[in-house]
Structures are given as C-alpha cells and as structure tokens.
Amino acid sequence: MESNVNDVDKLINILDNVKSSDSLTEVAGKLYFSQPYVSKLINEMEKQYGIQLVNRKENPISLTNAGEVVTQNLKIIQDAQVKLNISLVDLKRTEQGVLSIAICSLVDGPSISYIAQKVHEKFPYLRFNFINLSGDLTDHDLINGKIDIAIGRKWNNLDLHVIPLPVSELALLIPETCPLYDEKADYIEFSQDNLSTLNDCEYIGVNDSSFLQRKVDILLKDNGIHVNKIMELPDSGQATLMALNLHATTITTENIARNSLAESDKYNLMMIPKENTSLDMGITYRKQSSEDIKKVAHTINELITDK
C-alpha cells in the first residue's frame, strides 16, 4: 500500500472530499473506495507527515489546519507534475522535429501556403503538420500537447500565451441572383433592410461550428434572416469558391473573397461591422512551450500582420 501514498491525485480527492462529507464512510462512497481503505490511506499520510490531517471524532469530520496546508501543497505538486508531463511531451515532439499547427477557417488557402513556405524556409530542421482548427479542438488540446500552435479564436487559460491578431473583417457575398446585387458597385451597405433581401437565399456554410459558423448563425438570427443552407464545407476558402460556382451567398473575409473573385464574377460584398461579430483572433501556444515553438509562433505573427 505504500505506493498508494504517493498517488497525489488520490490523496487530493480524499482530503477534498473530507471537507464536504460527514464521515469517512461517505468519503469512501463518493470515491468508490472501501471505508477501511480510505482510513488506511489517511493513517499512512499522517504517519508520513507526522501530524494529524483529519478530525475523525468530529461530526461532521473536517480537515485540521495541517490537513488544509497539505491539501494545498499536494495540489501544487499535482500541477507541477501535469506541467512536467506536458513539457516532456513538448520536448519529445521537438526532438522529433514535428510541430502541429491548427489554423481556423478564416485563414485563407493562399495565406496557409505562404505561411507554410516561409516557416519551412526559416526552420528547415523542423517538420510541420498543418490541420484545421475545427470545433473538435479546444484549449485542452494545446495544454496536453495534441497541438503546438493554434491560429484562430482566443482562449482564456492562464497556461496559454496569446499573440493578438487584428480583428477579422467579415463580408457577405451578394450574388447576381440576389435582388440586392448592383452591377455598378463593389460594395453594398450593411443594414437591416439590405440583410432582409437574403431571406431564403441559398447559403454555403462552414463546418467550424464552434467559431465562425456560430457567430454567423447568431448574426442571421438576430436580424430575422432565414437562409437556405444547401451545404457546408471545411473552411471559408472552399465555401467562398463553392458560393461563386453555385451563385449562392456565404460569409467570408474580404481577403478570402478578393483572392477568390475573378473579374468576370458578378458579386458584391457587404462588409459586416466588427461589433456585429467580435471575431477576435490570436496565435496561441503553451507558456511552457519550447523555444522553437515560441519562435515559430512569433514568426507566423509577423507573416500574417505584414502580409
């Protein structure tokens, strides 16, 4: 049983549950342990630290002052162990020369190619794996080392460092099949009345449900607009090209639209005010990341902001 005393997670769970339980039997039930097993672990802890941790004779039971201090410090040890594990994963990946970079759908294809080429030229000793920053990926994927760098939405996590990016300006593609289309104009004014002309228009969506598409859905709903979503594609670049081919509408960025539109395409753009979407973006990596990861992240920031 001595090895169990060193199981920090288990010890923290026991001491934490003492604070919200009436008896050791209740603690054991919450953790699916036997009461003798819990008692033995507490006795071993008290023997190891040389001080009483739990007031067993009280009803309800409680932690002693020493128990509170031990619990707090065990959590520090637990946090340090997690960070150590993350660092080891990080170091192993760096030693293998592979960095995983997740990019959201608002970064268009040409920019991804441009970024990939430039970071390869600057860091030829590294191998890069670029993937879509989809709704399935979260800040925990950065914390546990599944991805090294994320370009897209910001996460509020003290273990992550965020390099802010300029707020993306979104635009609605207005096809010639829409009554709002003006062949003499490049841009159409954003207004409630103009948005209402999109009712029942064919719409190409994006699969990024946790970021872009959720914002788009809220925007349309708040303005009472119902569109006929005929398909969804993995990113905004592909959605824009498909919308052009099918004379449909989609929400994209001005940069993606301009890179996709040909002179012969009969489309207008309706720029969406930033306050209507609040798509704050950033480049995010773990604070404990290797120097290579940090350098790559800051290089990508320079490439995006200077482009």
Rank of each mutant, 00 (worst) to 15 (best):
M1K: 10
S3W: 09
V5K: 15
K10E: 04
L11W: 00
I14S: 10
D16L: 09
N17W: 10
S20I: 14
S23Y: 10
I42Y: 00
K47C: 03
G50Y: 00
I51V: 13
V54W: 03
V54N: 02
R56T: 12
G67H: 06
E68N: 14
Q72T: 09
Q72F: 09
L74E: 00
L74V: 05
I77E: 04
Q81V: 05
Q81E: 02
Q81S: 12
I86F: 15
S87H: 09
L88T: 12
K92P: 00
K92D: 14
Q96A: 14
V98P: 03
S100R: 11
I101P: 08
I101H: 10
L106A: 15
S111M: 15
Q117D: 11
Q117E: 15
H120V: 04
K122F: 03
K122T: 07
P124I: 06
Y125W: 01
Y125Q: 13
F128E: 09
N132K: 03
L133P: 01
S134M: 06
D136N: 14
T138R: 07
H140V: 10
L142A: 01
D148N: 12
I151H: 08
R153C: 11
K154P: 01
N156W: 04
N156P: 00
N157H: 14
D159E: 15
H161I: 09
P166I: 05
V167W: 02
L170V: 02
L172G: 05
L173Q: 12
L173M: 14
L173S: 07
L173A: 10
L173F: 11
E176W: 05
C178D: 13
E183N: 05
E183I: 02
E183W: 00
D186Q: 13
Y187L: 12
E189T: 07
Q192Y: 10
D193T: 10
N199W: 00
D200H: 02
D208C: 08
S210Q: 05
F211W: 10
Q213T: 11
Q213D: 05
R214M: 08
K215F: 07
V216P: 02
K221V: 09
N223D: 01
V227R: 06
V227E: 02
P234V: 04
D235C: 08
S236F: 01
Q238V: 06
A239Y: 05
A239W: 04
M242W: 04
N245F: 02
L246Y: 05
A248V: 06
T249E: 00
T249R: 00
I251T: 09
T252C: 01
T253E: 02
T253R: 01
N255I: 13
A262E: 10
A262L: 14
E263K: 14
S264L: 08
D265G: 09
Y267M: 01
Y267Q: 01
M271T: 13
P273C: 07
S278Y: 14
G282C: 09
T284I: 15
K287P: 03
Q288T: 15
A297K: 03
N301L: 06
I304V: 09
K307D: 12
